[in-house]
Structure formats: C-alpha cells, structure tokens
C-alpha cells in the first residue's frame, strides 16, 4: 500500500504548496505552478521517495493525484 500522507507531502514539497491543497482530485489543472518543469522534479522525487522507476510512458502522463497513486500502487511491491 502507498503511504498517502507521504505521497501528499512529497507532491506538496515539490510543487511548493501547502499539503492541505493536495486532495484526491488535485491535478495540474487545479494546482497553479504544476508545470512541465515541476512535473519533471515531481517524477524524480517520487522515484527517490518510493524507490521505484517510473516508466517513460507513464512519467509524462501522471499529472493528477489519482493517476500518480494508481501508477505507484502498481510499481511498489509490498
């Protein structure tokens, strides 16, 4: 299982927003500043924090909290 509190914390740190703003429907449409540069940093940060390697085809697509959670769930081996 993904530690959702941790996930929210990482997303908030990288995007530079308060952790409360990361709700289940958070996405690059709802959070100002979630641009392609920040997204790149986010992918790197997620990989480091969760010890996974996000495949290239997913890396560009996971621009919402829900999608990130789905992809990480698949990658993290419990």
């Amino acid at each position: 299982m993904i530690d959702e509190a941790l996930l929210k914390q990482v997303i908030a740190s990288v995007l530079g927003v308060p952790v409360e703003t990361i709700g289940p429907d958070a996405s690059s449409d709802t959070i100002p500043g979630w641009d392609s540069l920040k997204h790149m940093n986010l992918v790197l940060a997620l990989e480091q924090t969760f010890g996974v390697e996000i495949p290239d085809e997913d890396a560009a697509e996971i621009t919402s909290y829900a999608l990130i959670k789905v992809v990480l769930q698949d990658l993290v081996v419990d």
Partner: peptide, 11 residues
C-alpha cells in the same frame, strides 16, 4: 537525502 526532503529543508 531525497529530492523532496531537500526541497523541504532548503525552503
């Protein structure tokens, strides 16, 4: 230290 940790600490 991970990227997220560094960002938090620097900020």
């Amino acid at each position: 230290a991970s990227l997220a940790e560094l960002m938090g600490a620097v900020n």
